[in-house]
Design a binder for these strands. Sequence first.
DNA 1: TCTGGGGTCCTAGGACCC
DNA 2: TCTGGGGTCCTAGGACCC
Length: 398
Amino acid sequence: MAFALVDCESFYASCERIFRPDLKNVPIVVLSNNDGCVIARSTEAKKMGIAMGVPWFKVRESFLKQNGKVFSSNFTFYGDISARVMNILEGFVPRVEIYSIDEAFLDLDTLKQNYNLYDFGCHIRSLVRQWTGIPVRIGIAPNKTLSKIAINEIKRKNIPTSVIDLSNKKQIEIALQHTPVGKVWGVGRRLNDHLNNAGINTALDLANVNPQNIRKKFSVVLERTVRELRGERCLNIEDDISSKKQIVVSRSFGERVSNLETLKPIVSNFAVRAAEKLRSEKQKCSQVSVFVRTSPFNKNKPQHSDLRTIGLLTPTSDTRDILAAAKKGLLPIFRSGYDYAKAGIILNKFTNEHVKQHSLFKDPNDPKQNTKLMKYLDQMNSYETQIYYASQNTKKWS
DNA sequence: TCTGGGGTCCTAGGACCC
DNA sequence: TCTGGGGTCCTAGGACCC
């Protein structure tokens, strides 16, 4: 009974290194949109004390002085490398759950032969490295939560092969003992504080609490975590390609925005992008939400944040419908006198593109319902041509 | 001066129904 | 005038993840 968690080391930084062998051993950081903050660091950069999520301006000077290399993020590229890694993993076992851009769970129970799991892990690691250039860590354990703990153990003990088989009870207990409860998968900052107040400081402490009490005092979610720490299996490998339930397009602005006329085209851009994503998922949505917010870091300025949800009579993936809803949602939440720092569009309530649900109030033969136009636009926009809606801002905001 | 973006799941509470 | 209780569905918001 074992799962493996395959986790790419410093993924974005490792991607940047693939075609730049000269960057070996050089500290690397990758920055978020607008070069706002650090979202990935190579091992060398971590050693320099660069924290995850730290605002770039705070560390820039010292990092560059120490000959660090900095990159703006290139998610198309990272996505492409990720797909290659995942593809290789899928060649090893029949059941793989792609959990995030840089992580996958493998169901080792489905292995036909009785491999030594540690050796099997080393084999996977070496082939992924050879075929993609990406170094991975592999944590093997009885369930997902413990495989996360296994990955932490590789880091903590600095295991040179980057592979660990954490199946032995005693070994698991030692690992739990060394894991602060806040590092357990599913325990965030809030829960960490509450647990610490209750005298629960390590993963082992948490494992030793009665799961039913945890459920009463906290939630079913944490109860599952406790059970998994104790070795039970509550979370399964989800390898069915389930479609998204939500699409979000949002950005922090390069400069604060305080008037509606500037904000409108920005939000329109988000709406257009969201509709494109929706069509590429082959889905329609019947709910569009718009949100705006000021910067929570700007403590001495007035704060405002609001969200408005617009329901649609008929599920749609037509950009014009999404745009109209976005405008309708934006107007009532915008207030003058605030410096907005971020806005976004959220699409919800999806139905499959081919399910036709006629509205009582809309004529299904209305040529406006024709999806061909949207297809042509998507095709054209995927080449050099860019077709814009009049309400969009043609400046690059993405 | 400059602080990311895109997701999931759960729950409390309101609306509505009988 | 007296004014129940239980169920479902939906939504907003919180907490978490990478």
